[in-house]
Design a protein around this nucleic acid. Sequence first.
DNA 1: TAAATAGTGTCTCTGAGACATTATATT
DNA 2: AATATAATGTCTCAGAGACACTATTTA
Lengths: 254, 254
Amino acid sequence: MTGARKKTAAGEAEFLASYDPTRFDPVAVTVDLALLTILDGRLSILLIERGGHPYKGAWALPGGFVNRDEDLDTAARRELVEETNVTVDVAHVEQLRTYGTPDRDPRMRVVSVAYLCFMPMTETRPVAGDDAATVRWWAIDDLFAEDGPDLAFDHTQVIQDAVERCRSKIEYTTLATSFLGATFTLGELRRVYETVWDLKLDPGNFGRKVRSIEGFVIADGPTSGRGHRPLYRSGPASEIMPPFKRPNPEGSPA
Amino acid sequence: MTGARKKTAAGEAEFLASYDPTRFDPVAVTVDLALLTILDGRLSILLIERGGHPYKGAWALPGGFVNRDEDLDTAARRELVEETNVTVDVAHVEQLRTYGTPDRDPRMRVVSVAYLCFMPMTETRPVAGDDAATVRWWAIDDLFAEDGPDLAFDHTQVIQDAVERCRSKIEYTTLATSFLGATFTLGELRRVYETVWDLKLDPGNFGRKVRSIEGFVIADGPTSGRGHRPLYRSGPASEIMPPFKRPNPEGSPA
DNA sequence: TAAATAGTGTCTCTGAGACATTATATT
DNA sequence: AATATAATGTCTCAGAGACACTATTTA
């Protein structure tokens, strides 16, 4: 029921010519990246220590403004490359959700479209920023520990949403393989689940489940590589049906 | 790695004072509403016929600009009330996803945060807009039929995303009850599933499943109402564990 | 040789699906 | 009485989980 929508009919060309975009309040649209990987057996996220105001000294998700004539997804992938030098196609990128509380950035109204990325640690080239010391991977546990660092903006919420989405996504998709290199053993894949869900899984049952899902993993030649354990590579399937049953997260239901 | 983030340190107050928001390209942020209900046994969505350019005569999702100092969720709920007069608390509202392709609106750069709403038909007061004939519920089937209407902007995609999200959401949440009034019979609840999934479910098995999930439905007194069938009301549970198993959507696999 | 890991083989239990059956209410 | 719907009972089957066991490789 806005004025724009109820404008009286006219030729479309002249309508557009008479349209004045500057009458809107200034809003900036940014993309923020929740970049998850598994580092030293811990689910971790890439953060940047802010050198300037606001939230100087706090840690923030990498991100930046969406360029004129740039798609949101494109902006997210561009930022990903800029921040990590990662070959874009090895990482999974999906939209997480959009955060737009009016005062989330004290400078101005900023609506931020957050993206969630899963990537293998092995593919990340050390991030060479303007100031190398300001970028690092944080284990999620350390981030939310008692003596954890300050987080900028509403990024605590964004990170929590990202982790929760990650946990549930590997239940019904094959995205857990996004945390691994091109080839991997079933033990390595199992360890991804164990790390993200923070529990132990039975190796036998896990392997049976994985191999029973058509197209989840593909045997990669006869016991080729690492430790002479059988190697697999990611298959064409994207959904797991029926999904993994995630055991009760942490402790039994009293 | 933007200029804004790497600004040299200074007092926060003076930094903010010197900050000029007008240097950004003009972007408008809107919310669009995918309002789903079940009307005459068909999953349906509320659309508005556009009276002005662009996409004059095409059908579009209701929506509008996010006000200055207004939260995205607040804007969505405000639009919901404006469009339907629905009591906000009977409807479920959640963020769907954000659409920001540069040319999705020919007038200017518009980033639209789409929201998904489930509501009972019974709660909708007929929408009295400026021009009553331009607002109506469309059955999803009719919308995507051969001779379906033109849809404005990228709303075909938004609607498809909304329907897909709806279909999967009722698998693992109790949101199907959002399509029903305060009290309902198990048959009515079953019909919601059958409508959204477009298939038939066994009444016996369905009822057993529903009643086995603690807090999904609560018996509402001894066979009170409608047709003297046992009535239930929505319970406190929000998740269904283990989830409903959605039978293969349409026809068997190969 | 000892330890770790991949994979198999059982056995049990839960839950889904296909019915048939009963109870109750509507027409 | 005929019909529709709610609910129960039974049986079968798929899949998850517990766990023992084998084979292989690494240290």
